Simulated scan of single mutants.
Amino acid sequence: MKIAAIDLGTNTFHLIIAEQNGTELEIIYKTNQPVKLGEDITKDNLIIPAAFERGINCLKQFKEELDQHHIVNLKATATSAVRSAINGQDFVTAAKAEAGIEIDIIDGDEEAQLIYEGVKLSGAITGKSLIMDIGGGSTEFILCDEENLIWKKSYNIGAARLMQGFFKSDPINEIDQQKIQQHVANELKALKVICEEYKPETLIGSAGAFETFAQMLLPELDIKTISTAEISFAAYQNLATKLISSSHQERAKMDNLIPLRVDMIVMATLLTNYVLNEFNINNIKLSTYDLKMGVLQSLRD
Rank of each mutant, 00 (worst) to 15 (best):
S122Y: 06
G123H: 08
A124P: 03
I125Y: 12
I125N: 10
T126W: 00
T126E: 15
G127W: 10
G127L: 09
S129Q: 10
D133M: 05
D133F: 05
I134N: 02
I134K: 04
G135R: 08
G136D: 12
G136P: 12
G136K: 11
G137P: 13
S138N: 13
T139A: 14
E140G: 07
F141M: 07
F141R: 06
C144Q: 07
E146I: 02
E146P: 02
E147L: 05
N148Y: 07
W151Y: 15
W151C: 11
W151G: 12
W151M: 11
K152H: 12
K152R: 15
K153D: 04
K153W: 02
Y155V: 02
Y155W: 03
N156W: 00
A159T: 11
A159D: 03
L162C: 04
L162R: 06
L162G: 02
Q164V: 00
F166D: 02
F166H: 05
F167D: 04
F167H: 12
D170Q: 07
D170R: 08
N173C: 10
N173I: 07
N173S: 05
E174V: 13
D176R: 07
D176H: 07
Q177I: 14
K179T: 01
I180N: 02
Q182W: 00
Q182H: 13
H183R: 09
E187P: 00
E187V: 01
L188Y: 15
A190G: 00
L191V: 09
L191A: 15
L191H: 12
L191G: 10
L191I: 11
K192T: 15
K192N: 14
K192E: 15
V193Y: 04
I194S: 01
C195E: 08
E196W: 06
E196C: 11
E197F: 12
Y198T: 11
K199Q: 15
K199N: 12
P200T: 04
P200H: 04
T202E: 04
I204L: 07
G205H: 09
G205F: 08
S206M: 05
S206I: 05
A207K: 06
G208W: 07
A209T: 14
F210W: 10
F210C: 04
T212H: 08
T212Q: 09
F213G: 02
F213P: 03
F213C: 03
